[in-house]
Design a binder for these strands. Structure first.
Lengths: 156, 156
DNA sequence: GGTCAACGTTGATACTCCCAACATAGCATA
DNA sequence: TATGCTATGTTGGGAGTATCAACGTTGACC
């Protein structure tokens, strides 16, 4: 049922100048992940996941440390933490040793929420990598890790 | 000159749950590319680059075809084409064979603009991949290409 | 001729990132 | 002690991108 002329989908490739660009490829992969994620959970759950995962792995953290760990701006952390605190997924209290800091800790509810998001995340990850073998997935992860680590030292 | 306690930067890693996620890695690589790009040109030049590259490789295209080639929404293409046309980087005329379509073609000015952006883009690409060997860069490109091609067929 | 689909445009909404303030709080040195 | 600099958390504005919905125009199919 195509009233309009259809072109061969094989030829529907992006231009070579874009296919050669790592940053363009990365943005498209990221977008695919975003679209798949949106089908399983609200998009804000991705930011929640990052904060909850950091707290679960490293224990209590200040909001500034959370931002440095995750590469997110302070104002983003502020919003995410406020939302998670409202839903009782974490505790927030002023550090008595440094009263500028808000020390944030995971609650039992937050841990449950984290594992729930983890489950959906695993689904998305498998769907995203469906075309790659296990060895290729490891290679891809290693290469991206190496690329990112070569830039991690200089940006907050 | 650090009045505050400093933590070892080696330990400043994102949580393992994020490091394992391809979509998170991809978004961070994309963000790095965006930041580097912003230091060489206005960010809108990235969208311009995509449209100009498609026209240069495939010749005249309708706006809808441009959107399908580049994975961009029609309204985005509309804005980009309007901007490029305003700056005389492309011609836009109604297709006489199908008067719904706007056929877009590259001008000499547009070709020059494309090559100018290409130059900055090469710089960013090299800076982004500075930590990888030539073989690793080829591997990474091949893996991302394979990942993307396994999803290309089903989304516009 | 009527129905449906494609096209281009405009608008609204959401998410992310960046930058700039601001008030509070701690450190460092004079 | 007093001054200045930095860190922290919060709030707000702005830009770029993506999604969805409408609308009028145009073409194809029945």
């Amino acid at each position: 049922m195509e009233p309009e002329p259809t072109y061969s989908d094989d030829g529907m490739q992006p231009p070579a100048r874009l296919r050669a660009l790592t940053s363009w490829q990365a943005s498209k992969v990221s977008l695919l992940g975003t679209r798949m994620t949106a089908q399983h959970m609200p998009l804000t759950a991705r930011a929640d996941f990052a904060v909850l995962a950091a707290l679960e792995e490293y224990g209590e953290l200040s909001q500034a440390d959370l931002g440095r760990r995750l590469g997110l701006d302070r104002n983003e952390i502020s919003g995410i933490v406020t939302r998670l605190h409202r839903d009782h997924h974490l505790d927030r209290h002023v550090d008595p040793d440094n009263r500028r800091r808000n020390v944030v800790t995971l609650t039992a509810s937050g841990k449950r929420y984290l594992e729930e998001i983890q489950h959906h995340t695993d689904t998305v990850q498998n769907e995203l990598l469906v075309g790659l073998t296990a060895a290729e997935r490891r290679q891809l992860n290693a290469l991206l890790t190496k690329l990112l680590s070569s830039h991690k030292t200089q940006s907050a």
